[in-house]
């Protein structure tokens, strides 16, 4: 309803793919509008336009263009930090926070709903950040339990360094550490946890 007027035309021209999801964005805005109206007596009440800033991404072309270029690079860096963590500064925690930053940047620039609709397939069916939390926790637990199954102790990690010379494209040391699975678990929990909190609090 009232939200319709605030939906900036810029979003539609800039992101044509947005059209199918318009209904949903409106729906959310509607609910918010209704709730806001019912507490009209509150002093610090934002205008609809201010609220739309967070939900629909009413930002400048410069910021949007920059975010489009920067966020993939940041995401790539995050993944590399996670993977190399065993031997160089990095790891699941750091990679997870960096990934969350990249996504939150997208939230700020494009709006929470837009990002979810574009990045998550069938977003109405599930909650990807909570899935990451539970999946990550399950993975970390599994990383602890697998050693128990093979007779080692809980969370005992191992690694494998292939003897040289290596075939194919590998050269020098080639190491596979089972700790990577645990690290990926940490990564998923951190990303999922941070994004859940940001999304829930941000949609307030």
């Amino acid at each position: 309803m009232s939200d319709e007027a605030d939906r900036p035309g810029a979003t539609e021209t800039d992101a044509p793919g947005d059209v199918p999801t318009a209904g949903e964005t409106e729906g959310e805005g509607d609910g918010e509008g209704a709730a806001a109206a019912s507490t009209a007596t509150r002093e610090r009440r934002e205008t609809e336009a201010q609220r739309a800033y967070v939900t629909t991404g009413d930002t400048t072309v410069i910021v949007r263009t920059a975010a489009r270029i920067v966020s993939p690079i940041v995401l790539l860096l995050a993944v590399s930090l996670t993977i190399r963590g065993h031997n160089l500064p990095g790891g699941g925690f750091i990679g997870g926070v960096l990934t969350a930053i990249a996504v939150v940047l997208l939230y700020v620039v494009f709006g929470v709903d837009y990002v979810r609709d574009r990045l998550v397939p069938r977003a109405e069916r599930w909650n990807p950040s909570m899935a990451m939390v539970s999946g990550g926790l399950a993975l970390a637990l599994a990383a602890g339990l697998v050693p128990v199954l093979v007779g080692s102790s809980f969370l005992e990690q191992g690694f494998y360094i292939a003897p040289e010379p290596l075939p194919g494209p590998f050269f020098h040391d080639f190491e596979v550490a089972s700790a990577l699975a645990f690290d990926v678990g940490i990564y998923l929990v951190v990303v999922g946890g941070l994004l859940t909190v940001v999304r829930e609090v941000g949609s307030e």
Binding site: G91, F154, Q157, A179
Partner: peptide, 27 residues
């Protein structure tokens, strides 16, 4: 060389502590 479990197998001691030596804390 080969599969080793006694050692951490990482040069980043901070991370090895997090994911191996004190992995239960991290969990």
């Amino acid at each position: 060389v080969g599969f080793v479990t006694e050692l951490g197998g990482g040069a980043n001691v901070v991370n090895v502590v997090l994911v191996d030596f004190r992995a239960t804390d991290t969990l």
